[in-house]
Amino acid sequence: MFARLRSVPKNYDWGTPNAMSALQGLPPTNQPEAELWFGSHLASQCTVDEGAKHTDFSSWLHVTGHAFPLLVKFLAASRPLSIQVHPHQDEAAAGFARENAEGPALDSPQRTYKDGNPKPELLIALSDTFDALWGLLPSALKTQRLQRFAATGLASRTVEGLAALSDQDALATVISGGEGINEWAEDLAAWSIREDSVDSPEGLLEREIFARIAQAFPGDRGIVVAFLMHTLRLTRGEALFVSPGQIHAYVGGFALEVMLPSDNVVRGGLTAKHQDADLFLKTATAPPMQVPPFVSPVRRDGHAVYEGVAMPFSVSGIVGDGDIPATTDALILGETGEFTFSRERASQPIRRGEVYFVAGNSQPLQVRGAGRAWLVEPRGN
């Protein structure tokens, strides 16, 4: 059984104009279309076609007895998102209950917890490149970065200040706005637009990302937090896993995101939205890591499958003919080209920008076509 899903673009200010309209083959809106959500989260605005009627997807799942305990998004960022962290399960449940009891209202901009769920998420780059900040640098890598910045013109007062930060207190000092942080932010912004020669790909990427941050958020001390973090450039098809407690910020590009159905975000910089420094530091529990947790797909039945021990879901990238198991209720998302998915007596064409729910079945899905589509399935932990 196949059922067509629809959703409404989220017009956040960091979005790419007309990105979701173009994906869906709709007339341009000339709005910054940031995200398109598919799932049962209350804020998803996701519906399912029932003849000429569009029924709320969550209600439809309840009535039909099907389940899809995930949230899937297309994301299009034309400028950096906030530096943020997502809570663990116990933190989310306690925070949601507390804010429900004390306020603010669920739709208030001062609200942090929109639900009681954690938000482990997988991001897969769909554009040629996708830039991000992720996790804290270990001490040795932070020292190497500072040496690169100093050699290419970063002001000495900021070099000295950053060098004096202890590994244990660096994030807390910056987030809390300690002495000199505003000056460091100014110096990092000025450094990012210098024309000194940068002789390594790593240095070029750092300067490009810092310049984008400085342009989008002049004077924001989040640029100093960014100094403490890995700078990443994913290429098409590369994937990054973000666990609860891990600080991150997406900087630019088009991507597919898969997560548990949560909209809980604790922000620590690069945003005009509500920030809570104490809660951010309490939630950001992940230690520095030498290498970010990239997720490399494995080839299975001709498809690229993204999965991992910590991921309560799997994602399969489909580029051509073949059979693919789909034993649990799942979503199919068309990215490019056109496919026909068949099982038993049911057959469904799926084109670019179309999203379908498919009921789980022991029989594999037969796939015919060319382009790129994605199958997203929940998995038990």
Rank of each mutant, 00 (worst) to 15 (best):
T336A: 15
T340K: 13
V291M: 13
V315Y: 01
P288Q: 03
G317H: 09
E335K: 11
I318H: 02
F313R: 01
G308W: 03
I318G: 11
D276M: 03
A330F: 05
D301N: 14
A330S: 15
F280K: 02
A310H: 11
I332C: 12
G322H: 08
Q290G: 11
P325I: 01
P325M: 07
T327M: 11
L281K: 04
F294W: 10
R299N: 10
E338F: 03
P293S: 08
F313L: 01
P292I: 01
G317C: 13
T327Y: 13
Q290L: 09
L279N: 05
T328M: 04
D301Y: 15
E307N: 12
S296I: 00
K282T: 03
T327G: 14
I324R: 06
D329H: 14
G308S: 13
D278E: 15
V315K: 03
P287C: 06
S316F: 05
L331H: 10
P287Y: 04
P312W: 01
T283V: 08
V298N: 11
A284V: 00
H303D: 06
R300Y: 15
A277D: 05
V309T: 11
A284N: 10
A304K: 10
G320L: 06
V298A: 12
R300S: 13
L279G: 04
D323R: 12
G308T: 01
D321N: 15
F294P: 09
G320E: 14
G302T: 07
E335C: 10
S314M: 06
G317Q: 13
A330G: 10
L333F: 08
A304N: 03
D329M: 05
V309K: 14
G308N: 07
V305A: 12
T340Y: 10
F294G: 13
T340N: 10
H303V: 09
G308V: 01
D321M: 06
L279F: 04
G322N: 07
E307R: 13
D321R: 08
D278G: 06
A330D: 00
M289H: 11
L331S: 06
L281E: 02
F339R: 01
A286Y: 04
A277M: 01
E307H: 14
G322Y: 12
K282I: 01
S316G: 07
